[in-house]
Amino acid sequence: MAKTIKIIGIGAGDPSHVTLQAVEALNTVDVFFLMEKGPSKDELLALRREVCRRYIRPERAYRFAEGTTPERDRGAADYLAAVDELNDRKGAAVERLIAEEMADGECAGYLAWGDPALYDSTIRIVRSIAESGRHDLVWEVIPGVSSLQALTARHRVTLNSIGRPVLITTGRRLAADGFPAGTDSVAVMLDAENSFLAFRDDPSVEIYWGAYVGAANEILIAGRVGEVADEIVRRRAEARAANGWIMDSYLLRRTGQA
C-alpha cells in the first residue's frame, strides 16, 4: 500500500495564515516530519507544533518524527553545485524518515514555511524521491501564504504597480545584475549581504522591508532606500544576534510610475 506525502504550506509566521485547505490536510496526517536546524531554530519547530495543536481535531492521533537538515557550504565557489549537493543531503534525510518512520498506507505531513512553491526545495526533493522508484509514494502540495504576500499586506502595498511586471529574485542576483530593466518592482529574498545598499544614492528607489513577518517579533521598515538603509542594516544585525537567525524579505520599487 502506497505511502502519502503532503507538503503543506503554513504561512509566514502567524498560525492564522493557515488556510482551510491546509487544516483539512493536517487532519489526514499520521506523522509530521520536523526537520531540525539546530537550537537557534527551535522557534520554527515550535510554530509547527502549535499549528498542529491548534488545528488538528482532539480525537485525531498523530505523531512527530524529527530529522536533521544539513547546512549549505557557504564558502563554496560554485553556488549552484553547492545547492545541488545540499538538496541531495536533504533528500537523504527525508528518505530516511519515509523508510523508518512511516508504515505502508500512512500519510506524512511536511509543514513548509510560507508557500512551498516559492524559494523552497521540498517539492523538488519529494519529486526526486517519488520518481526514484525506491518507495511507493503518492504526494501532493497544499499552497500557503507566502512571505511576499504577508510582507506586502503588512505594508499595505501591492506587489506590482498597474500594468507592470514584478521580478522575484535573490540578493545574490540583485547584486550581480543591478535593478533589472523592464520592471519597477523587484521582490528580494535570501539577501544576507544587504544588496539594497547599492541603491541608497538613487532617490527614485523605495524599499518595503520586513523580518519575522506575522510573528510576535515582526519588524517593518519602509521608505526611500537612502533614508532607511542604515536603520534596516542595524535592526537586521540586532535581530539576528538576538534570535540566532532571521527571515526577511523586501520589495524595491522605482517611483514615478502608476
Score class of each variant (00 low, 15 high):
8 I>H: 11
9 G>W: 02
19 T>A: 06
24 E>L: 12
29 V>D: 01
39 P>F: 11
42 D>M: 12
42 D>N: 12
45 L>V: 11
51 V>P: 03
54 R>I: 08
61 A>C: 08
65 A>T: 01
73 D>V: 08
73 D>Q: 13
74 R>F: 03
86 L>P: 03
88 D>Y: 12
89 R>Q: 14
92 A>R: 15
94 V>W: 15
99 A>W: 07
100 E>H: 10
106 E>A: 11
109 G>V: 09
115 D>E: 05
121 S>D: 09
124 R>T: 10
134 R>Q: 14
135 H>P: 08
137 L>H: 04
137 L>C: 04
137 L>M: 09
144 G>A: 04
147 S>L: 01
148 L>E: 01
149 Q>V: 01
151 L>T: 00
151 L>H: 01
156 R>V: 12
157 V>Q: 06
157 V>A: 05
158 T>Q: 12
174 L>N: 02
175 A>S: 13
181 A>F: 09
189 M>S: 03
189 M>D: 05
191 D>E: 03
192 A>K: 13
201 D>P: 07
204 S>N: 14
204 S>I: 07
213 V>G: 00
214 G>T: 01
217 N>M: 06
219 I>G: 01
219 I>S: 00
221 I>L: 11
222 A>K: 13
223 G>R: 09
229 A>L: 09
233 V>G: 06
241 A>Q: 15
242 A>N: 08
246 I>P: 00
247 M>R: 03
250 Y>M: 06
254 R>E: 05
256 G>R: 13
258 A>Y: 08
